[in-house]
Amino acid sequence: MSSTLPQTFGGKLIFILQNYGTTFLRGAGVTMAIAVVSTFIGCIIGFLVGIVQTIPTDRSKNPVKWVVLGVVRFILNVYVEVFRGTPMMVQAMFIYYGASMLFNINMSMWTAAFFIVSINTGAYMAETVRGGILSIDNGQTEGAKAIGMTHFQTMVHVVLPQALRNIMPQIGNNLIINIKDTCVLTVIGTVELFYASKSVAGAYYWYFESFTIAMGVYFILTFLCSRLLRLIESKMDGPESYDLATTDTLAHTSGMNRYPGDSDQDAHADKFTASGSM
């Protein structure tokens, strides 16, 4: 059998792709599933934490709310600091084995993978969302308050949609980081792209060839995702132009300026009110 094995670099690549192509594809699929789902769940966690961090509180007006929020915020801060401050690989070991040792829960590979990556992404996203909310001009909030919106309505309809648009690049960053970082889950036995590459490499001791393919696959995945996210961003911005029903009768853009106090002011004003009366 060994006499039929290819000897050149290119030949080995082709041989691996022909015989183990599906292994790589399956690994890439697992990687993408974990990265996409966990980024999504992480974003939701991040939004919830970020929103709680930006609820306005007035100690004198509502002391109970102030205390409760204070406690919740402290817990959330601990969560953010701990999960941002420790490596995901260590977290994976800690949670996976800790769950079975302490609580007798034997997580499946999928549950563990989704849980660890989501909660890690959530910790990063919490700060990103907080930043996104702070980046929205206070005038937007005041405008919403001035027409009688509550804090919750202001958030849902005005601030968060704009914050989401502003943090899209960072969400993209997180997705790409997650695609790459799922490889640390090999320590708990998740068969994703890195694990698959390693097993193929181990079968023939073709490490360089196998990981050349892994490099290519990882790059294709991240590149496609970053382009796709750009596309979504421009969709969110909406069209550059807009439909005009007719011409604007009041904008003096054609050189016919009229200042307050001009003699023909009233004639124009009457025409203007004729369009509808209160």
Binding site: G139, Q140, E142, G143, A144, K145, A146, I147, G148, M149, T150, H157, V158, P161, Q162, R165, Y242
Partner: peptide
């Protein structure tokens, strides 16, 4: 304050239109 503000409108120096909505949506959301 929310109920009261709905009855007392305000127009700002810096307009404060909602940037994520069209002109029509701005006038409908409230």
């Amino acid at each position: 304050p929310s109920k009261y503000r709905a009855k007392v409108g305000m127009v700002f120096q810096s307009f404060n239109l909602f940037n994520n909505m069209t002109v029509l949506e701005n006038c409908m959301i409230g």
